[in-house]
Design a protein around this nucleic acid. Structure first.
Lengths: 235, 235
DNA sequence: CGACCCCTTGAGGGCCTTCAATCCATGTGG
DNA sequence: CCACATGGATTGAAGGCCCTCAAGGGGTCG
């Protein structure tokens, strides 16, 4: 089940410098000489969908750069239900709070098969002392997280259920235009949009009937972005 | 109306070093010698309630440290209505995005008489080059903003209207325990909680009738935090 | 004093939740 | 190979909460 697999406990400069998503991530501006000053191993980890990457209150020793897949950040509400406060996509960073406090703020769970790099806080700090560019990148990642949160508040937590579901689908669709998007479980949809799973299910069914999305099986669907945009804007 | 008043166009070290809220703000860790390297003026500005501090898309040349009062950050929804995505309190920073992009993400409006320091981005960058401690403070401010946003998502955008209003009141009350809190306009409450102003009004009226809050006039009320906590947790 | 703004309260209806039953896909064991 | 168990998805029915539209009240300021 929890098949966490550490692909490579990396200790040199090769992996980062040839990283396929490096232009997206934290180390985009680093020079070859900078990598030479990394003394703590950076782990590249592969996990399957459903794996918990860290939990609220866990000792926060590292930040996680997502190289593949999709991660949800969850908070527990007073009544025990869960709310998804953010989705972290490829190039995003989960657990940034490790840089300013000693425990994580959320539960991080892989929604799909995920590959990520686990960068110890010590490594970030070592690099920060040397390369001012990293500060800028870090702030960009903070800003990215904040923009995502703002988007959740403005787009996914206002309006009626139809609008919210449509906006969520558009959010997923703009990552793979015209390609099928992987739908969440209805429960996750509900936890993102602050609606019940039944309402999420009814709305998705309605979208399929009216053609706003087309089911292609295996929990995937193709979005009619024009139709969804109409729904998102007026209801 | 828009009585923006620049109290002191500060160019020396005196004001910051004797700042009453310095332990809360960005410059907490700076040493005397650091202040000597500030070459761009930091303005201390006083504005009255209702003043717009900056607007979405405005050229973002500075970040704003709030020294007194309360500021709302607003985004415009596709349909033209407004949503308040964050409240910035004393010690908080508005417009952090100025550090990573050239325009502001929100509309910032003073909800009360506000005093703030306008710190040019250039000044922050000059100081960053010298004092690593400032990085840490900056990241704490980013984290503070992100935590606020998460709180809005988890506490103020879920549950029924009674719960949301109760949680908002508790949020305001924990700043001045047992003291009266200043209630927002019902419209602002609605924009924070994603409910209509009528529902906000009805709920506040109900709380007054049942004693969960006690009106003391002038838009202020004393909160029965125990009663409100009960409502916040179960409905 | 009147205009204005905000707050309050009412009535009706629609949307979403709640509770419940059924369906479907998948995987497991006989 | 098939029966069965399981977890998620779907759909129905009833009710309640909140929104919408509307009218009236109260405080403040010119």
């Amino acid at each position: 089940m929890k098949a966490t697999q550490i692909e490579a406990a990396w200790r040199g400069t090769a992996a980062c410098q040839s990283c396929g998503v490096r232009h997206l991530v934290l180390f985009a501006d680093l020079q070859a000489e900078d990598f030479a000053h990394i003394h703590t191993p950076i782990e590249e980890v592969h996990v399957e969908a459903g794996t918990q990457l860290y939990s609220m209150g866990d000792d926060a020793g590292a930040i996680l750069t997502i190289r593949r897949g999709l991660v949800k950040l969850v908070t527990l509400l007073p009544d025990g239900t869960q709310r998804i406060v953010r989705l972290v996509r490829v190039g995003g960073v989960a657990g940034l709070e490790a840089l300013v406090k000693s425990s994580y703020d959320h539960i991080a769970v892989a929604l799909q098969p995920v590959e990520y790099c686990r960068i110890p806080v010590a490594t970030v700090n070592q690099l920060q002392a040397r390369t001012p560019r990293l500060h800028q990148r870090l702030m960009e990642k903070w800003h990215e997280a904040l923009s995502t949160a703002d988007g959740f508040l403005a787009n996914l937590s206002t309006g009626n259920a139809r609008q919210r579901v449509a906006r969520l689908l558009l959010l997923l669709a703009d990552e793979t235009p015209y390609g099928p998007v992987r739908l969440f479980t209805r429960e996750d949809m509900g936890a993102i949009l602050a609606i019940t799973l039944e309402t999420a299910s009814r709305t998705i069914s309605d979208f399929k009937r009216t053609g706003a999305i087309r089911d292609v099986g295996h929990g995937q669907a193709v979005c009619d972005t024009d139709a969804l945009t109409l729904i998102a804007d007026e209801g």
